Amino acid sequence: MTTTTTHPGNTTRSLPLPALLALATAVFVTSLTETLPAGLLPAMSADLGVSESAAGQAVTVYAAGTALTAIPLSAATAAWRRKRLLLAAMAGFAVANTVTAVSGHYALTMAARFVAGVAAGLAWALLAGYARRLVPGPMQGRAVAVVMTGVPVALSVGVPAGAYLGGALGWRWAFALMTAVAVVLLGWIALGVPDRPGQERAGRVPMARVLSVPGVVPVLFVTLVFVLAHTVLYAYIATFLDAFGLGDSTDLVLLVFGGASLLSIWIVGAFIDRRLRALTVASTVLVGAAAALLAVFADSPALVYVAASLWGLGWGGAPTLLQTAVADAGGEQADAAQAMLVTLWNAAMAGGGAVGGLLLGLFGATAFPWSVLALLVPVVAVVAGARTHGFPVLRAGA
């Protein structure tokens, strides 16, 4: 998710779609490997002989692997050639998903998920920057947009398909299929993606300097709490639906959520230059409305699908909104601010899995939507208060 300048020798006049689609597939693999357990928790817990809250830590340890290693690994590999680094990350996914598919031991499965999270830390540290360096400056935004389509495709198609495949053939086949995709992608990258050099010198900006920039702290706070709220519910959505007799509809609910997320990304892309603040407020309110519906009307299948639609509309564009906000606020320190956002994002996902497991054990699945509502209150307050810096009424340069 970091930004990088265009490679000096790049003079292409059109988007290199085969290369960009390979990078988009890498984003798809990263996103789907992370979220796949959300639709498979009951089957995973039964097969591994653990509770569903314990199985939910498959999301936690993945996010922890990314959060703990993204910044140090990015710094350590800054001088590596980009193709070599991306191939290493995708090979890590192939190995980790293979072990997950065949493991019969909970501890080994969690170790494999941690390794997958480390691979994700490598991938997220280079993918957006790699895309930008494949095209001239005026085309960088479009290039990154193409690559980031891997996220909504993973949400709208991959997770529901994984849930369906897990129900039809068993959850292990879903991870085995991810291995197959990663192996094919390794060949695609090797043959179809131009290489780019790493950074000769990687400057290091003190964290205190970045945090002192006006607006950075509010955006990072919103990122941490908003992602935490989302993950508490999303990581245990199969368990939540099962508690209300809708466990067999998990794949359809996730499909509705993913479809609404695609629409959300399109809306955000069309209006973010002029309406970042309004879109962020709307995003939070929509997710809150979805949580309220699930808290009160989860026994109504029709309203569950309405809630999934609102949730997707609110959440789909949130990554773009928060990345743009922190880059705007960071100014000259935008790269360092983005690195902090990536780390906090994954820390929140790890925390969401852990908090969700605790809530499930103490209060049951019905506590999930109420916890989302409680967490979104300070999010709305901070966005509303950051009118000058962080989420300004008018974006600089818009």
Rank of each mutant, 00 (worst) to 15 (best):
R133V: 00
A161Q: 10
G104W: 10
P160H: 13
A123N: 07
L252S: 15
T320S: 11
Q338F: 05
A76P: 07
G137M: 08
E52L: 11
L73R: 07
V217A: 11
V159R: 00
S74E: 12
G259D: 14
F226I: 00
S264R: 13
A116F: 00
T284H: 04
I267F: 10
W80H: 04
L341H: 04
L394Q: 03
Q57Y: 08
W80E: 07
R204S: 12
V115P: 01
L108K: 02
G353T: 15
T179M: 12
A180N: 14
G397T: 07
L85I: 13
S45C: 09
W311Q: 01
F175W: 04
F271G: 05
A295V: 02
H7V: 06
V181T: 01
A154I: 04
A89I: 03
P206F: 06
V281H: 06
V205C: 13
I265S: 02
Y106T: 11
A295M: 11
M207D: 14
L211R: 03
A182V: 00
A78L: 14
L359Q: 01
L36K: 07
A302M: 15
L21F: 14
S261T: 11
V382L: 15
L252H: 14
M90T: 07
L20Q: 06
E332C: 09
P197Y: 15
M110Y: 10
A260D: 05
P369G: 07
M44H: 05
L310K: 00
E52I: 08
G357T: 04
L165R: 04
A180F: 11
M139T: 03
V205R: 11
A238H: 08
A94C: 14
L286G: 06
M148E: 02
T239N: 06
A292H: 10
Q333G: 12
A24E: 03
H389F: 12
S261A: 15
I189F: 12
Q199S: 13
D328L: 14
L246Q: 13
L220R: 03
E332R: 15
G49N: 14
V29M: 10
E52F: 04
S249Y: 04
F28C: 10
A46R: 15
P369Y: 09
L241P: 07
P392A: 08
V147L: 12
R13Q: 13
P378V: 09
P152D: 01
G330A: 06
P18M: 08
W370G: 02
L246I: 14
D47C: 12
L40S: 02
L228A: 07
V210G: 06
P194C: 08
D251C: 02
G352Y: 08
G397W: 01
F257I: 00
D248P: 02
L122T: 02
T66H: 06
L233Q: 00
T25E: 07
M349C: 14
R395H: 06
R133G: 08
D335M: 12
D242P: 07
G357N: 04
G259P: 05
R142C: 01
G150H: 08
V157N: 06
A202N: 02
A302Y: 13
A208R: 15
G104C: 13
T343R: 03
V181K: 10
A291D: 09
W80M: 09
A75M: 11
L294Q: 09
P214M: 09
G65V: 15
G258H: 10
L321W: 14
V281G: 09
S45Y: 03
T69C: 11
T239S: 10
V268S: 11
S371P: 01
A348T: 07
H7R: 05
G259N: 10
W173H: 08
V342M: 05
A374S: 06
A291R: 00
